[in-house]
C-alpha cells in the first residue's frame, strides 16, 4: 500500500500515473505501508530515523581522507598539529599510517 503524504489517500498498488505525483492532489511523496498497517502522523514521525551527526572535525584522527581517486579531504587541524599523517581510505574505516616516513623522520632527529 502507498499513502500520499500530502492528501493521505491510499493506493493499493503503484500506477504509472503516480510517477508524476498523486492523481488527486499532485503530492510527490508516498509512504509505503505494509498490508493492514495504518499509521498516524505521530507514529510516522517516530518512524523517521534521524542520522546521527557525523564525527566532529576535532575527533577525527585522520589527516587525509581519500574518498575516491582524485577526491581528497584534508583535515588541516590534524596536519598542522601533528607530524604524522594518517590516511583514511573512503568511508569504511580503513586507515593507512605511512610507517616508513615516520621512522625516517625519527632517524633524522
Amino acid at each position: 500500500m502507498h499513502k500520499c503524504l500530502k492528501c493521505g489517500k491510499i493506493f493499493e498498488r503503484l500506477t504509472d500515473a503516480m510517477l508524476k505525483g498523486c492523481p488527486d492532489c499532485g503530492g510527490k511523496l508516498f509512504l509505503y505501508l505494509r498490508p493492514g498497517e495504518e499509521l498516524s502522523a505521530a507514529e510516522l514521525v517516530k518512524r523517521i530515523e534521524v542520522d546521527e551527526p557525523g564525527p566532529v572535525e576535532l575527533e577525527q584522527i585522520e589527516s587525509l581522507r581519500i574518498l575516491s581517486p582524485g577526491v581528497y579531504e584534508l583535515n588541516l587541524n590534524a596536519l598542522l598539529e601533528r607530524k604524522e599523517i594518517v590516511m583514511r581510505i573512503k568511508k569504511d574505516g580503513s586507515y593507512v599510517v605511512p610507517l616508513s616516513a615516520l621512522f625516517k623522520r625519527k632517524g633524522k632527529q
Binding site: L64, P69, G70, V71, Y72, E73, L74, N75, L76
Partner: peptide, 28 residues
C-alpha cells in the same frame, strides 16, 4: 591550503580527467 580537493572542480576548467586527477593528487 584547502580542506577538500576534488578533480571534478578542475574538469570544470576544461582539464582532461587524467590531468585533473593528477592535479588533485599534486595539490594534496
Amino acid at each position: 591550503l584547502a580542506t577538500k580537493i576534488d578533480f571534478h572542480d578542475f574538469m570544470a576548467f576544461g582539464l582532461e580527467e587524467t590531468e585533473a586527477k593528477k592535479r588533485a593528487k599534486e595539490a594534496t
